[in-house]
């Protein structure tokens, strides 16, 4: 296991509920450190997105606390696009924290935006319209926007869920690189294989039990994943490209002959 830096995000007995009866999450303890990638897994409607919003400071936890050390960048799945901004306009908005209320972004801000585009491999798209991009490209631009704000922690809401396989790989390997450069990263996903690919640790949020946090291998056992989604799985171990790989295969009820 890699050595991680100081803790960036700390949840202590955190919970969130709108009405005090149904909880999106409850009694959650979690520490994410610099250089660490943490995948959040759980069935639909289990409060993964709410957890990210609370961690980003957009909502207060109903109980307990979630404290971030350093700025937090949130990468949404998508957003309401009303006006045809260019990619560069959008990435520049990530600098909002660093630009005074009545000021315009300056040379330093433009440099940070350009650097963020370079890190995500999107420099060539700077003057393109955001709406003309593919889903994968949009996700990379939104990540660039968050990075431009120079956060210590990056929270991503299903960054790879709606993407094709090639783009999933682009986004996942970018997350790994960013963590290796010292960011603390938390992302939600519906794909246990995404966690196997890049996550040091997993936070599993099962439907009717307390959330479970730990190293990826310890948490993602076949039994636990089956309990998480109500579907049995099998873990395959095999050699490919000179490396030993693990892959989690769902055992769907229906099988074609």
């Amino acid at each position: 296991m890699a050595e991680f830096g100081p803790s960036r995000l700390t949840a202590r007995a955190a919970g969130h509920s709108y009405d005090g009866r149904t909880w999106q999450f409850r009694d959650l303890d979690l520490t994410v450190r610099a250089g660490e990638v943490r995948a959040v897994l759980g069935p639909n409607g289990r409060g993964k997105t709410t957890l990210l919003r609370v961690a980003a400071g957009l909502k207060r936890p109903t109980t307990g606390s979630i404290v971030a050390d350093g700025a937090v960048g949130l990468v949404p799945q998508d957003f309401a696009r009303t006006f045809p901004y260019t990619v560069f306009d959008i990435v520049l908005m990530g600098r909002a924290r660093h630009v005074g209320l009545l000021r315009m972004p300056g040379g330093r801000d433009r440099a940070a935006a350009a650097a963020a585009l370079a890190v995500t491999g999107m420099s060539a798209f700077a003057e393109r319209g955001f709406d003309s991009l593919s889903g994968g490209e949009r996700q990379l631009v939104l990540i660039a926007r968050a990075i431009a704000g120079e956060p210590a922690t990056l929270l991503l809401d299903e960054p790879a869920s709606a993407l094709d396989l090639g783009n999933q790989d682009r986004v996942l390997s970018l997350l790994r690189r960013l963590a290796d450069d010292g960011l603390a990263i938390v992302f939600t996903t519906h794909q246990p294989n995404h966690a196997l690919a890049v996550a040091d640790g997993v936070l599993a949020m099962p439907p009717d039990a307390p959330a479970l946090s730990g190293p990826t291998r310890d948490i993602l056992t076949d039994d636990r994943i089956a309990a998480l989604y109500g579907l049995p799985v099998a873990t395959l171990t095999f050699e490919a490209g000179g490396r030993t790989r693990r892959s989690i295969a769902p055992l769907y009820t229906s099988v074609m002959p």
């Binding site: 949404p76 957003f79 309401a80 009303t82 006006f83 306009d89 908005m93 909002a96 924290r97």
Partner: peptide, 15 residues
């Protein structure tokens, strides 16, 4: 510009 991205997105950007 930032307000036009939506309330939650703008808030997440620190506005």
């Amino acid at each position: 510009n930032i307000l036009s991205m939506g309330d939650e997105d703008a808030a997440a950007l620190g506005v």
